[in-house]
Every structure is written in C-alpha cells, then in structure tokens.
C-alpha cells in the first residue's frame, strides 16, 4: 500500500500539509503523542526527525529541539520501540528525516528494515546527495519498497532537477530559499518565480515546499505553484510555547 501516492491522488484539488517534528521532543516519550495529535488535527503527512548532534542543514529552532531530544536520552533504537504500534494510531504517510551519520551507525539496511517493520513510508536525508544516493543507497531503499525524497533548491540547475526527479520517489522537497530551516514571515516575488518555474517543468513527482513556511501568508504562497507545504520550525516553536501537544497542534492549524 503506497500511502504517499494515495495521499497525492486523493487530494488533487486540495493543498497538502506536512508537519515536521523532532522525535523525543519536547519529552523523551512524546513522540507518539505528537504523531497522534497531528493526525487527529487533520495534518496530511508527518516527518519524524531523528535527532543528530550536528544538524548542518537546520536553523537554531530545530537544532535546539534535536539537542533537547538527545539530552532527553533519545536514540534510534528507542524511536523504533516507540513507533512499534504507530500504525494502530494513524494511517497517514510517515517519513523519517535525519542525517546520514546516524543512519550509517545504525546500519542503512537495518534502518530500512526497521522502518518497514513499523510502517514508515520513506526517508528524507538532506546530506545524502543525488550521486551518492543513486550509487550507494537507491538499491537498498527500493529493495524495501520505501520512498526516498530528494531536495531541490533555487540553486539547482534545470538539468540536475531532471535527474533528481528521476531518482526521487514519493515527492520532491522544494527548498524555498538559500537558507537553513527556520520560520520566515513572507516569501518574495523571486521565490514565486522559482516555484512557478518548477511547476512549469511538469516533473514526474509532485512537489511540496519547505523551509520558512510558518503562517498563512507563507503557506498560501508556497502552495500557489505546488501541491502543498511542509512546516517544521514553526511547529517546534509551538510545542515549546504551548502547554500540551494538542494545544501546539491547535495553535499551528489556527495560524493557517
């Protein structure tokens, strides 16, 4: 059963909202609660961050949540333990997002195996570039029937976007700007032109826009030329500020 495809097929006329959070944040055992609250709150897809000590592509908010999760004692083994019965909780697509170093220590194949066991649908690993993915990791990912979502950015030339589109599966993560993760208040006209340019390329994969999406203005702007958007830092901030995870989800949804 391909949950990601089913989602994109079923939402042809609506925008898709995908939300990122860091596993083991704000508390070690809040992982399942957060997934349940997001799913109950109507979010379409969830990206579960595997905390890493040195998250090179992340801004301060996600960095701090990763550090907090590690201080809480979060590990990859514990994550799979927590996710053991997650398919009894929700049927929306769940994606693991992390960095290659922790995946290597866990064993990349082992990671795929465990992911399939608990019902994960795919991976986003921003420091595995296209070339390394195609030569070293793609055969393993495909063997396990998982999706691998590659990223494109405003700096990615058209020819490379085509290659990324052909290697990527599930969808393409369209990074909004030259930046690390982190909330922005508005998206410039430049960004709109870039989103439109990508839309006009008619890629085989659908695209979702991420990095900087935080409120109605940025969500709508992101969605204008894509199938939806991904929110990360703004939700992590809500988790910090709100008394419960349910309140954090409510606060996020109310801003959109």
């Amino acid at each position: 059963m391909d949950r990601i495809k089913r989602l994109f097929d079923s939402k042809k006329n609506e925008k898709i909202l995908s939300v990122y959070f860091t596993a083991g944040f704000p508390k070690k055992d809040s992982t399942v609660d957060v997934i349940k609250a997001l799913s109950d709150g109507g979010v379409d897809m969830i990206e579960i961050g595997i905390p890493f000590s040195d998250p090179m592509a992340d801004g301060p908010v996600i960095q701090q949540s990763s550090q907090k999760a590690l201080d809480n004692g979060m590990t990859q083994n514990l994550l799979f333990e927590q996710l053991k019965d997650i398919r009894k909780v929700t049927d929306i697509p769940l994606i693991l997002m992390g960095y290659i170093n922790t995946a290597m220590q866990f064993g990349f194949e082992n990671l795929c195996k465990k992911a399939v066991e608990v019902g994960i649908d795919g991976f986003i690993i921003p420091d595995i570039p296209l070339e390394e993915y195609s030569s070293q990791y793609k055969p393993i990912v495909e063997k396990y029937g998982l999706k691998f979502i590659l990223l494109i950015t405003p700096e990615t030339p058209e020819e490379r976007i085509r290659k990324i589109d052909s290697a990527s599966s599930g969808f393409i993560y369209m990074v909004s700007s030259a930046s690390t993760t982190g909330a922005q208040n508005s998206f410039s006209e430049d960004k709109q032109r870039y989103f439109k340019k990508i839309a006009d390329m008619n890629l085989k994969n659908p695209t979702l826009v991420g990095f900087g999406v935080s409120n109605k203005a940025t969500f709508d702007a992101a969605c204008e030329h894509s199938r939806g958007a991904i929110i990360g830092s703004a939700f992590i901030r809500a988790l910090e500020e709100q008394p419960t995870v349910q309140d954090a989800v409510k606060s996020l949804i109310s801003k959109l």
Binding site: F52, M56, L70, T75, Q76, N101, M104, D127
Partner: peptide
C-alpha cells in the same frame, strides 16, 4: 573513531554507538 560523515566528508569520527558526535 568509527566511519561516518561529518562536515561533508566520509571519514573516521569520534562518536557514540548511535552516531552522535
């Protein structure tokens, strides 16, 4: 160190068994 990826390069790295630097 054990093999891993830090700062863009695959190399030997001092890290925990779970891959934290």
């Amino acid at each position: 160190g054990k093999e891993g990826v830090l700062h863009g390069s695959r190399t030997l790295i001092m890290q925990t068994p779970d891959g934290q630097i």
